[in-house]
Design a protein around this nucleic acid. Structure first.
Lengths: 203, 203
DNA sequence: CTCGAATCGATACGGTACGTATCGTCCATC
DNA sequence: GATGGACGATACGTACCGTATCGATTCGAG
């Protein structure tokens, strides 16, 4: 998927066997214990076959995510912004947990010290989803659920930030009720009251 | 610092040499290339000496942070909540960047697949700082800069979340102006307008 | 339908870093 | 001044890495 040694002669069965073995081993032993040699053994495939088509372990898992996460590609749009945000955030939490065996968390971690993987992660997974998320906000805006000058970058940071904050520092993921509380706060932040100064309640 | 083989007979000079070498190598080559063997060589210390006193590479770096980050222990309190939050968030960003050579980012990454390290990180670094952060919010509350029913957990998530969100997904750290925008939004979220429903601007 | 090219599985290789074990030395305490 | 433990040095076996080589197979072009 990343580099092309030659060909459409690539054997699809091997590719699938690799991705399947990767998924299974990740579930069984966690991303941390995942090795290319173990993937090759489980897939009944030569190590060379993996190295020929993927530049790193992370790239394999990224492909795995790509195929599996097509289902979660588009953010929901029922017309109820708050409810749709709740749905989408829950899905992201599901993708990132359980932390030790989540391929997505694994790739995010691995990308910390692999610039190539970081770029691929951002370009292939993150940025397209950010774009679609902002599209969803834009539609909400058109329906009057968000003010015309709402800052979508801030919305992105405030809504998804807590999840990654808790992921990074092992603080436990938000439960559905707390997710509601978060969304309520963020929507409040994006809807400035008509005649009031920022920041201070009484000062 | 984590387990005690026996003694106050521990040689302080070796301990310092290890921490110094760790800091230097982390700066030079990045946390990703840091190895215990390299630390031992640079510190002029036997590998055994490191393994005797630290359970893992991450534990060494965690000790390094512990000593160095005492300066950033207490959140600032000038009486201006928004300004103090800006200061504190900037300091956190400085601790986490540059990403490849930051010991803190390194430990956070390593802790993803090392439960013991994750626990030590949380108990020794994160939770004490969270407690002090909430103390600061409590003082702001007493001074009327936050409503009496402000949700401190939400404040924590919304203020620090964006930093870790951007760290994890390589989206670039907030600049000072954007930090202002974020803080303004969060303070607005925490200060509900007196007579208005949540969520919808016009709906 | 044949032929050739390129992928494939298998295997071996050198390299790095891990974590452990051993041993003589040095130092601190008693 | 003796004793015990930390220390430096060194060697060891293991695990994976990433690369190289080599028939066999299989697919596609002609």
């Amino acid at each position: 998927m990343v580099k092309a040694p030659n060909a459409p002669r690539r054997r699809e069965s091997s590719r699938l066997a690799v991705l399947t073995a990767t998924r299974e081993l990740c579930e069984e032993n966690g991303y941390g214990r995942l090795t290319i040699e173990a993937i090759a053994a489980r897939a009944g495939v030569s190590k060379m076959t993996i190295y020929r088509w993927w530049p790193s372990k992370g790239a394999v898992v990224l492909d795995l995510i790509d195929e599996a996460a097509a289902v979660t590609a588009d953010p929901p749009d029922t017309g109820d912004l708050a409810a749709d945000l709740h749905t989408q955030l829950s899905e992201v939490i599901n993708l990132l947990t359980p932390q030790p065996t989540s391929p997505v968390t694994g790739v995010i971690t691995e990308a910390q010290y692999d610039p190539d993987l970081a770029r691929a992660l951002r370009e292939r997974l993150i940025e397209p989803r950010i774009a679609k998320f902002k599209d969803r906000l834009r539609r909400a805006q058109e329906q009057g659920q968000l003010p015309v000058d709402a800052d979508f970058d801030v919305a992105l940071d405030l809504l998804f930030g807590p999840i990654y904050h808790r992921l990074a520092l092992h603080l436990g993921m938000p439960d559905p009720d707390y997710l509601d509380t978060l969304i309520t706060h963020v929507l409040r932040a994006l809807n400035p009251p008509p005649h009031r100064l920022d920041g201070a309640a009484t000062a």
